[in-house]
Write a protein that binds this DNA or RNA. Structure first.
Lengths: 232, 232
DNA sequence: TTGTAACCTTAAGATTTGTTTAAGAACGGA
DNA sequence: TCCGTTCTTAAACAAATCTTAAGGTTACAA
């Protein structure tokens, strides 16, 4: 799952890009000037930015400079000017690519995919799906960090593995045996019946506000556990 | 200094690109078909490739696929076809950018510069990322110097390698085994279980103000070690 | 309503993992 | 070869995590 920030002051363009980037692996954020973009990048974990150059309040080049002070995700500039001079200016300052308006939908999707692939290829060794998000829970397999509503929580290895399993397939119900097999491994040497239950309890204590009335880790009687978006 | 490989079967195009990329920081290599390109990449440390698609013997797409099995430097495709379908094909297979013939000299230089900058920013195993910075720690792979808050510290080779590994991917958690494999080499002849731990201890004594409460080299119980920006 | 099986909760002891020393082995340069 | 540096091993210790077991609670179906 990748978080992509689309920043353009023209609503129509943002909406068009949102349609082009329809993809179950993408979560789309939007901003309408440089200031909003910088704020969003600091608040959320953004993996790629589509950034218009000409915007009110703070232009794209300035925003890019500010973002680059702290972050290094790919930035693709959007520009109406197709003159060479502008292209070169943007790339030299630190953009990774640029796309000129009007867009070709397929090209937008291709360039975004290309940058994301390059990013993960270099940044985090091949593996896909390092960042899982369900409701307010964020799980980063790279840093082994888990946050709930922005607050970091410390999980033990087993708790982490169970949560990761549940978050990989949100809504899917896993029986305790299934969890046991997938987390402990196929060759699991007999562990007691309720050890999974104990870990679930510990997890709930750490990620639920009210462990006794869990919003995220639900039980389906006779079936198993699942994770929900916690909207109730 | 960057090594750039130009691969095109037309001599004129190679020569033109050589002129466009006149730069004291670039060392230029040339190849005239995919086979030559793959061989050169395996022999030399190449930082970026300009790769023509249509070539005799082995075409650019095939060469790129072969190169990508082992390396991940930026690849910019050169193509006479400017139709969208071809652009997208190239990017999806693993190219980082493409340039359509005829070239605009300034654009060639700009795109090459952009990819090289992006490449070094992200850091990479094979790459020429010479200076790493995390928090107050600076590691220069060229001079093998490490400074913490401006003060130079003397690390042993093993300590240096471990620190470098951690700093190449700040935040990423490396299990002791992983560290062992990456620092000692795949063929590591069984070293004791806790030798990594001992080196970590030495590192902490040299880098941390209070080795017992490390700000930089953190442990995630049951997972491994990581380096943090030391903001606490 | 009642019995049963599924699930929950708690805490203590067992186990695993990480830390810290120190000593001796291996290595490399003079 | 000798000496200083670096690496590895081992052992004791400390800390975090896992499992077990026992008793409690809840949901379902007859």
């Amino acid at each position: 799952m990748y978080n992509i920030l689309i920043c353009d002051d023209e609503k129509d363009i943002v909406n068009a890009l949102k349609i082009y980037l329809q993809n179950p692996d993408y979560r789309l954020f939007e901003a309408h000037n440089g200031i909003e973009a910088v704020e969003l990048v600091q608040k959320e974990t953004i993996h790629l930015i589509l950034l218009d150059i000409m915007m009110p309040q703070m232009d794209g080049i300035t925003a890019m400079a500010k973002i680059r002070e702290e972050f290094n995700m790919p930035i693709i500039l959007l520009t109406a000017k197709s003159e060479d001079q502008d292209k070169i200016l943007g790339l030299n300052i630190g953009a990774d690519d640029y796309i000129t308006k009007p867009f070709n939908p397929l090209e937008v999707a291709a360039r975004v995919g290309s940058q994301l692939r390059r990013y993960t290829r270099l940044g985090s060794g091949a593996a896909a799906q390092e960042l899982l998000t369900v409701g307010g829970i964020e799980l980063d397999d790279n840093t082994k960090c888990v946050t709930v509503d922005g607050n970091q929580v410390n999980l033990t290895p087993t708790e982490f593995d169970i949560l990761k399993l549940l978050m990989e397939y949100p809504g899917k119900v896993f029986s305790p045996k299934e969890i046991y097999r997938k987390v402990w491994g196929e060759d699991a040497l007999s562990a007691g019946e309720n050890t999974v239950a104990v870990h679930i309890r510990h997890l709930r204590e750490k990620i639920e506000i009210t462990p006794n009335e869990p919003r995220y880790i639900k039980v389906i009687f006779g079936q198993g556990y699942k994770i929900e978006k916690g909207r109730n």
